[in-house]
Amino acid sequence: MKIIDRLFNSSLGKKYLMAISGLALFGFIVGHLVGNLQVFGPPELINGYAHFLKSKPALVWGARLGLLAMVAIHIVTAVRLTMENKAARPVQYAKWKENGASKSSQYMIVSGSVILAFIIYHLAHFTVLLPFVNGEGDFTKLTTVFDGHQVADVYAMMVIGFQVWWVTLFYLIAQGLLFWHLFHGLSSMFQSLGLRSYSWWPVITKATKAVSIGIFIGYSIIPLAIFLRIVGSDYAEKARHQLHAETVQVVGSGKEAGK
C-alpha cells in the first residue's frame, strides 16, 4: 500500500504522524490535568477517582497501550526527522541568524527529550511507586479505605511527594519545558495537517498559546500549592506516620473516607 509507505516514509507523512500523535498526547495531557486538579478537593475525591480508574482495568490498560503507541510514534518519528534534517545540512554556516524562528521552534527535540525523561521519572514516582525516587519512602504503604475497599491513598502520595523540594523543582522545570514544547507544537499541529488559512492562522496561534499557558498554570499549581503547604499539609503529617510505620495499618483519615 502506497499510503502506508508514504505516511511513514515521506517527509509530509512523518509530519502528519507527529501532528496526530501529538494531538493524542495533548488529549491525554488535558484529561490528566482534569484528573489531577481534583487534589484541590477533599482527599476522597481524587482517591475515589483513582479507585474508579483502577477498577476498570480494560479501560486503563487500553488507554495506556494507546498512549504508549502514540509516544512511540512521536519519539521514533521525531528521531528520524531530526536525523534527516541534520543530514540535509552537513556543513553549518559560520555566521547565522535565527531569521524569525522562535527559540521554542528550534529546540523541540531538546524540550521533548527532557519531557521524556520527566515522563519516565513521573511513572516511577507515582505509577510504579519506586521507593528510592520520591525522597520519602515506600508509597505502597499509603492506603486508605474508600467505599469499603482498601485502596491506594493517592492524595497522601501527592501531598507527601510534593513536599520534597527537589521533586517539586523537577516537576516545575518539566512543566516549563512542556509549556515551551506546546507553545510551538500546538499551532504547528494545525500547520502540519494543513488546517490553516490566512484568516484562521492568527486565531490558531493566539488560542494555542493561551491553551499552553493554561496547561502550564494548571499543572504547576498542584506541586506548588502542596510545597507551599497550602494544600493537604495536615493530611501529609498524618499519612507520614503510616509511611514510616513498621506495619501497614489504616490511619484515621482513611476511616473518615470510608464513611
Binding site: 517527509s11 540535509a88 524562528a101 521552534s105 528550534q106 502540519s192
Partner: peptide
C-alpha cells in the same frame, strides 16, 4: 531536503 518544523524562517 529536510522537513518543515514551522520555524517560519523561510517566509522571513
Amino acid at each position: 531536503f529536510g522537513s518543515c518544523s514551522v520555524t517560519g524562517s523561510c517566509e522571513a
